[in-house]
């Protein structure tokens, strides 16, 4: 057991990153800002993900939530499995293993000059934030922005400070809803499709970007199709078990696609004959 014979990079070897800032967003979501110990930037594009390692526990795929226009990178980690439970027990200054950036992000060139409609369910807001902030940092390159955010409950609304900042931006129309009523909530109650008719942007000529729980996609796409949005103008961000992240281990396959390579962001028209996708 020693050296690789060919001098090639070990595609499975994480590099260390330090948690420089962390904040509990609610009972299950933890915000982390990380910097690579090498001093280099991660070099990701919006929509890409990283494999996050806790040595001794394992590895989990987590979406980047920050725009590459900022230094370091942000992750939001839901406390749901062994790795993420271990991350929730960490503190600032602790180290995580990082592999990435991995996968295929949003096709930025195709979006230039277009109005963008972000439709997010729950932590589906997290990967979309990487593109939303990228777009708002380059306002001359993109059109208007609508952000639709549906949370399962009042307590599970994420990024409230961030949402408030977006709401103040002239380019942004922010629409929020929660699935269940709450005494402190005076806004819309219902699933995210119930606020889609309030979008000011001409949907048929805009790019729509969807990220949320598996059940959400079908209903949002039905609503978009009713609004004459073509499948070419819909992008979906699909979660799968991206174990190796480099198209080898087979766990994330969506029929013939490897979500970790062809995705996680897919143009919906590319999935029309992919029954396992939605």
């Amino acid at each position: 057991m020693s050296e690789c014979c060919c001098g090639e990079k070990d595609i499975y070897l994480p590099e260390l990153a330090t948690i420089t800032r962390m904040q509990h967003m609610n009972e299950t979501e933890l915000f982390l800002h990380l910097e690579l110990d090498s001093g280099k930037e991660l070099g990701h594009m919006p929509g890409q993900f990283v494999e996050v390692s806790v040595a001794g526990i394992g590895e989990a795929p987590i979406s980047n939530t920050s725009s590459p226009t900022k230094s370091g990178f942000d992750l939001v980690v839901r406390k749901i499995g062994r790795v993420t439970n271990a991350i929730h027990a960490m503190k600032e200054g602790d180290k995580l293993g990082i592999r990435g950036p991995l996968g295929h992000g949003y096709p930025l060139e195709d979006m230039k000059g277009k109005d963008l409609v972000f439709i997010c369910g729950g932590i589906g807001l997290v990967p979309q934030r990487s593109l939303i902030n990228y777009v708002l940092d380059k306002p001359e390159d993109f059109g208007k922005v609508a952000i639709l955010f549906g949370a399962a409950s009042f307590e599970q609304r994420l990024y409230q400070d961030q949402l408030a900042r977006w709401a103040q931006n002239d380019k942004v129309q922010l629409l929020e809803t929660i699935d269940k009523p709450h005494p402190e909530w005076s806004g819309n109650v219902g699933v995210v499709t119930t606020i889609m008719n309030q979008i000011d942007i001409d949907l048929a000529n805009a790019i729509s970007l969807i990220c949320g729980p598996p059940i959400m996609y079908k209903f949002v796409i039905m609503s978009l199709e009713q609004a004459n949005v073509s499948n070419e103008n819909i992008f979906v961000n699909l979660e799968r078990r991206m174990k190796c992240g480099v198209g080898k281990c087979g766990h994330c396959q969506i029929n013939h696609h490897y979500a970790c390579q062809s995705g996680p962001v897919f143009r919906y028209s590319d999935l029309s004959d992919i029954p396992e996708a939605i």
């Binding site: 057991m1 020693s2 050296e3 690789c4 014979c5 070990d10 499975y12 070897l13 994480p14 260390l16 390692s53 040595a55 001794g56 602790d94 180290k95 293993g97």
Partner: peptide, 18 residues
């Protein structure tokens, strides 16, 4: 098959079968 060794909280080191 072992891919790497690690120190808990620390660095990772690749392992190869030669």
């Amino acid at each position: 098959e072992s891919l790497m060794t690690f120190e808990v909280g620390g660095r990772y080191q690749s392992e190869y079968d030669t």
